[in-house]
Amino acid sequence: MAGESQTYEIRVQRGGGAVSYSVVLAPRMTVLDALFIVQRTIDSTLAFRCACRVGMCGTCAVRINGRPGLACRTRPSELGRPAMDVAPLAHLPVIRDLVVSMEPFFAQWKRARPRFRPKQPEAAATAAIPPDSEFGLLAAGKRDCITCGVCFAACGVRTTSGEYLGPAAVNRALLRIADPRESGGPERLAVLNEERGGVWRCHTTFDCTEMCPKGIDLTDSIARLKRGLAARGRL
């Protein structure tokens, strides 16, 4: 492995305060590696969550130096200083240490009617979506959501409104609405058009887009739905 190992101070938010640990990391090691080192060699009671370790599952989302992100995709060597603060995701209840309950996130996710409801459930042939079709092009940039909750934690509107759907749920709703095979619509549009919980609460600050570990332009999804609702006279 290229480069030299370096000692980092990792301050983990645990209960009421931050607990400091000193760990030695190679340049390509991640924040998740640092947490594992702490748990295995310093304090086995440290609680955090992870599964795939390659940025596919979204389970290890935490706040690193105040910014939500995936612990397995963040390298301390790229943070620019030898100390880092690691805290649980904002806007979600803490279960223990860095482990949060995703219940509020998925409660909003369910409100957006994420399930696919086919127009022809009994159809024998598979409905093909060509990659160069309108929906194919839209979905290519939006379908990679791993429901990690990073956008939910980054969203400034969630700070003041517990009713807001959040960017991931809105993005999912857009994918369902734009899908030509989808049959559901009116109930989903009604939820999106809610005064306190719908898309109109978004302040277009791009925080969700900036933080999304999959690079999804979530603000664009919200803006598309705002325009769609306005065009349908649902203002």
Binding site: H203, F206, D217, T219, R224, R227
Partner: peptide, 14 residues
Amino acid sequence: TLTLFDLGYGHRAR
């Protein structure tokens, strides 16, 4: 700028 973004323009150049 918000109006521009909400109309779908300039997201990448924000």
